[in-house]
Design a protein around this nucleic acid. Sequence first.
DNA 1: TGCCGGGGAGAACGAGCGTTCTCTAGACTA
DNA 2: TAGTCTAGAGAACGCTCGTTCTCCCCGGCA
Lengths: 185, 185
Amino acid sequence: MDADPIRERVLDAADALFYQQGIQAVGMDAIRARAEVSLKRLYQCFPAKEALVAAYLRRRDERWITALTDFVENTPATTPRVCAVFDFLAAWFATPGFRGCAFVNAFGELGAVSPLAVQALRSHKERLRTRLVALARRDGVADPESAAAHLLFLVDGAIVAASAGTVADPAGTAREAALRVVTAG
Amino acid sequence: MDADPIRERVLDAADALFYQQGIQAVGMDAIRARAEVSLKRLYQCFPAKEALVAAYLRRRDERWITALTDFVENTPATTPRVCAVFDFLAAWFATPGFRGCAFVNAFGELGAVSPLAVQALRSHKERLRTRLVALARRDGVADPESAAAHLLFLVDGAIVAASAGTVADPAGTAREAALRVVTAG
DNA sequence: TGCCGGGGAGAACGAGCGTTCTCTAGACTA
DNA sequence: TAGTCTAGAGAACGCTCGTTCTCCCCGGCA
């Protein structure tokens, strides 16, 4: 499956460059240079830039959801599952090079032109919402479906705030709000 | 001040095209065509595309905040001020051609390259946060500062959800969450 | 040793962009 | 009427990008 090392190298380079600088701002030659791969090989792996963008978004979706799930599973059971989501966000925001949600950014760049970007945003947020439903249910929240929608808002809002820098501790503040949302009502 | 009609025409064209298709996807010639202005006049008004982008974001910030304020002031006093914010969002989301937050989109496109975009996002969200503090205070919320941060998350999260289409009624659902946030605690 | 196929480096190509320049037509003045 | 200035239309320029093509080298085989 992922036994092709040069394909992985290309995807690593694309991930770093696309996320850091934006998709349109990064040329195929920059990816080729960072991956240390010939242009011919690059186009053998991905027949066009759009295919590379699709693979980039697919892999980032997979990895992000997996990282979130792992983080939540590895937090002590004493903390509510939905709070662990925001602890995960806090760690992510502190990552050097954090630059917001890759799917929201891609939507901003390409949403009007490429259905790929809007589809990627939609499916990523839908997967996240589904995870939030499951976590809310495990916490014994009364209405897991609507709680998950509220939590989804808080997650995306915290990501925007972390990008903008308008709130001092976005993850911690969103965590407080999450506690109120799932306990009140 | 804004007595220059061709400058207004240019800004109208830029607003429509930039918001709809993205900033990088729209060329100066497309703006010239839509504004029905000669290229020479366009460059007399704005010496470079970056100046036009800055003016576009500044005007959109001004108009959006003003529209929100007007909407809130014109809603009956029986509904909490912070709920009126989400009623405003509902009306905005239903607007044809809605394509998310122009500032978040601009940040996704240009954030890594242009300090202008990150500054515009930051100042826009800060202005919004300040308004939310004032509204929360008028509602008699216990801690208006932290309530405003929570509401800001819900607003931005609802905008992302409206873009992605993952939640059926983003504004209404966020409004519920807002009520819980400001009453609980 | 002579031959051949594959892969790397990078030139080439066509398109699109932001920005500037040129040309021309028309309006206003003496 | 002759001259001058302005402004519009659009060609031109330099650059970048995605994609393809060409050339050359190097390893395997008769």
